[in-house]
Amino acid sequence: MSPRIETQHSREAREQKPQPLLLSIEDCADALGVAQQTVRNWLCTGTVQLPTVKIGGRRMVRTADLLEFVDALGTQRRGQAPATPQPAPAPRRGRPRKAVAGLGGGAK
C-alpha cells in the first residue's frame, strides 16, 4: 500500500467543522458581541425581528436568519431609522389605576 499524500485542500476540508443550523441564545450573543440578556430582551420586546424556534424548552435562532439580520445592520445609514420598526409599548403591568368606561364588570 502506498503512503497517502495529504494535500492542503484535503486537510482544510477535514479540519473545517460544519456550521450549525441552529444557534442558542448564548451563541447569538457571542456572535453579536452583546450580553445574553440583551438578546433575550430584544426577542421578548420585539425590538429585533429575528425568528426563533423552541426545541426542548430552549430558544434557538437559525444561523441563516442571524446572518440576514447582521447583513441588514450593515445597510443602515447613520441617522436613519432602524430597518425594523419599533413595536408599540407594552401595556403596563399590575392593577389599572382607573376604570375604563365600557370595559369590565362594574355595577350598572
Rank of each mutant, 00 (worst) to 15 (best):
R93Q: 08
T63L: 07
A13Q: 11
I5H: 12
A13C: 08
L50C: 10
A29W: 09
P51Y: 05
P20T: 09
W42P: 05
T45D: 09
T52D: 01
P82A: 06
H9Q: 15
D27V: 08
L22E: 13
P18W: 02
P82Q: 04
E12T: 08
G79F: 06
A101R: 13
E15M: 11
T7E: 00
I55K: 11
D71W: 10
H9L: 07
A101L: 06
T47W: 14
L50R: 11
A99V: 10
T7P: 00
V39S: 06
T75L: 12
G102P: 02
T47H: 13
W42G: 03
G56Y: 09
L23N: 11
K108T: 03
V70R: 12
A107P: 10
S2P: 13
A83L: 11
A72V: 01
V61T: 04
T45S: 15
P18C: 01
R14K: 08
G94P: 05
G102L: 03
K98N: 11
C44Y: 14
T84F: 15
A29L: 02
P85F: 01
V100K: 12
T47C: 04
A72R: 14
K108W: 03
V39H: 01
E68P: 02
K17A: 10
A90D: 10
L32S: 04
Q36C: 00
V61Y: 09
L32G: 04
G102V: 06
L67G: 03
P87N: 09
T45G: 01
I25Q: 02
I5L: 13
G94V: 03
T38M: 13
Q37F: 05
T45N: 13
M1N: 10
K108F: 13
Q16G: 00
